[in-house]
Design a protein around this nucleic acid. Structure first.
Lengths: 95, 95
DNA sequence: ATAATATAGTTTATATAATAAACAAGTCTA
DNA sequence: TAGACTTGTTTATTATATAAACTATATTAT
């Protein structure tokens, strides 16, 4: 079939933006992602957790200058999933 | 911002598939779309209605060989929305 | 004729998901 | 030490996606 299923984890605006960012950066913290995506904190928190539970993100919580600091990086699984998603959705986009 | 909002009407697998099909074909009927997308009838019915209500699709119901026949074609608004969606999501996809 | 099956969809019910709003826990500053 | 700020998390509500059930008519078989 010409319309392959789209990974429901990645087929969400914010989660896709987060993964897209991390594909290039390899590491980013909560506040940085917040600014780049324009998301609300609540939504970002939930979606980072979702990505983590899907095994797409590795999340490391530390403190930086006395404040909590949440660092995210893509896992190999996350990279692979993103590549698969890109390949799949491109079939929908070409006219 | 680098992550422009994605049109929620089009950011759905089945609706995107339907519109993607119609961009090339200019006209297709319910059964044809059903086969090409692999959707269930119920879901396709709902999503065609959604696309119609969004003004993206013109739907014409007639009879063909005694059976009901539902023809769909993209409107100018639908074409424009699809082009916008493609442009927007491509920003998410480039690594 | 009429029962069974097929065609072409629509409606509704439910489960999931997305998101904003409210909350928490600690930190800085005047 | 009161008030505002930082960095998130939890919850509550709304919206959405989808399968299942239903409708209406047509065809085929007996």
């Amino acid at each position: 079939m010409s319309f392959a299923p789209l990974d429901p984890i990645l087929h969400n605006q914010l989660r896709l933006a987060v993964v897209s960012l991390l594909v290039s950066l390899e590491e980013a913290d909560f506040t940085f992602i917040l600014e780049k995506t324009g998301a609300t904190r609540g939504n970002l928190s939930v979606q980072i957790t979702n990505l983590q539970e899907a095994g797409y993100l590795k999340v490391t919580k530390t403190f930086k200058d006395n404040y909590p600091n949440t660092k995210c990086q893509l896992t190999a699984k996350g990279v692979k999933a993103f590549e698969g998603y890109v390949k799949a959705i491109k079939e929908y986009l070409k006219t």
